[in-house]
């Protein structure tokens, strides 16, 4: 609006996204490739160990060495991507679908519905997330899918709260009032104006929660409530490597670093999505 573009001199002809963001997308792309075609990246078997080749240090053949059963660590880390990403995807889907539905309902209906939903959300947020997911796991039993559902259940409250806030924000917007003023019906306005404008930040949260879910799943895996051995799961890999910490620290360090990179990348991407909102 302060429109004086005098002496317009573009400093850079080509505007690239920030380097960090590009790296983040690159990391996510690599992880997705690992998850979909692990065999393309890891030639070794992640499950079958080679007798007599236990706890080897990193070498050309085994870039990350071998674990206590002689299995190639790199192969296990690469195959672990599928477990983690699928689990995180399931968890975020659960949170996104149920949470957003609750939030939309609360924000659009208001009144008693809103109060009831929000008290439920308050309650879920009052219980520490680890304890809440452990409670769900007790109900459902151990296993990777159940762990993912448990993590998703915890995020329902976050999605519900954000989508409600967004719906309320957008509902108060003048363009929504203007849409009613143009003769729009309730559902049409909700569909055409409220939903699209409220969803941007919900999607940014989804990206953020994807990272949190990877982290939470790794924690559950580490504690032994997720995928059972010998499944290559990052949290489980760290737990297994821990026994050999003094002699083979890389067995613990490598899967942990991958988790850090994955979570950092999703956080960066989520930030870029959120920033585009304004």
């Amino acid at each position: 609006m302060s429109g004086a573009t005098l002496g317009l001199a573009p400093l850079r002809a080509l505007r690239l996204p920030p380097l960090g963001l590009m790296l983040a997308w690159a990391v996510v792309a690599v992880l997705l490739a690992w998850a979909f075609v692990p065999g393309f990246f890891a030639w070794q078997d992640p499950l079958a160990g080679i007798a007599g080749r236990q706890l080897e240090p990193p070498s050309f053949e085994h870039p990350l060495g071998t674990d206590g059963l002689g299995r190639d660590m790199l192969a296990r880390v690469i195959h672990g991507a599928r477990e983690s990403l699928l689990g995180a995807f399931l968890a975020v889907s659960v949170g996104l679908v149920f949470g957003t539905a609750l939030g939309l309902l609360a924000g659009a209906r208001g009144g008693v519905t809103d109060a009831a939903v929000m008290r439920l959300v308050d309650t879920l947020l009052a219980i520490p997330s680890l304890l809440l997911s452990l409670s769900v796991i007790i109900l459902l039993g151990f296993g990777s899918i159940n762990a993912a559902i448990a993590v998703g259940f915890v995020s329902v409250a976050h999605f519900a709260r954000l989508s409600r806030t967004e719906v309320l924000r957008v509902r108060r917007a003048e363009y929504v009032e203007a849409a009613f003023g143009s003769g729009g019906r309730f559902l049409a306005v909700l569909w055409r104006h409220v939903l699209p404008n409220a969803m941007t930040s919900v999607l940014a949260l989804a990206a953020l929660q994807f990272g949190s879910a990877i982290l939470a799943l790794a924690t559950l895996g580490f504690l032994g409530y997720g995928a059972p051995p010998p499944t290559p799961e990052w949290g489980l890999l760290i737990a297994e490597g821990r026994d050999f910490l003094a002699t083979a620290w890389w067995l613990t360090a490598a899967p942990g670093l991958v988790v850090v990179l994955a979570v950092l990348s999703t956080e960066r991407i989520s930030r870029s999505l959120g920033a585009r909102r304004t």
Binding site: Y175, E177, A178, G183
Partner: peptide, 22 residues
């Protein structure tokens, strides 16, 4: 009321807020 809106229209103060950015 909806049908009535054909007859009376409101123009808001802030043209930055009253148009859906999408």
């Amino acid at each position: 009321l909806r049908q009535f809106r054909r007859k009376v229209q409101l123009v808001f103060q802030n043209p930055f807020a009253s148009l859906d950015p999408r």
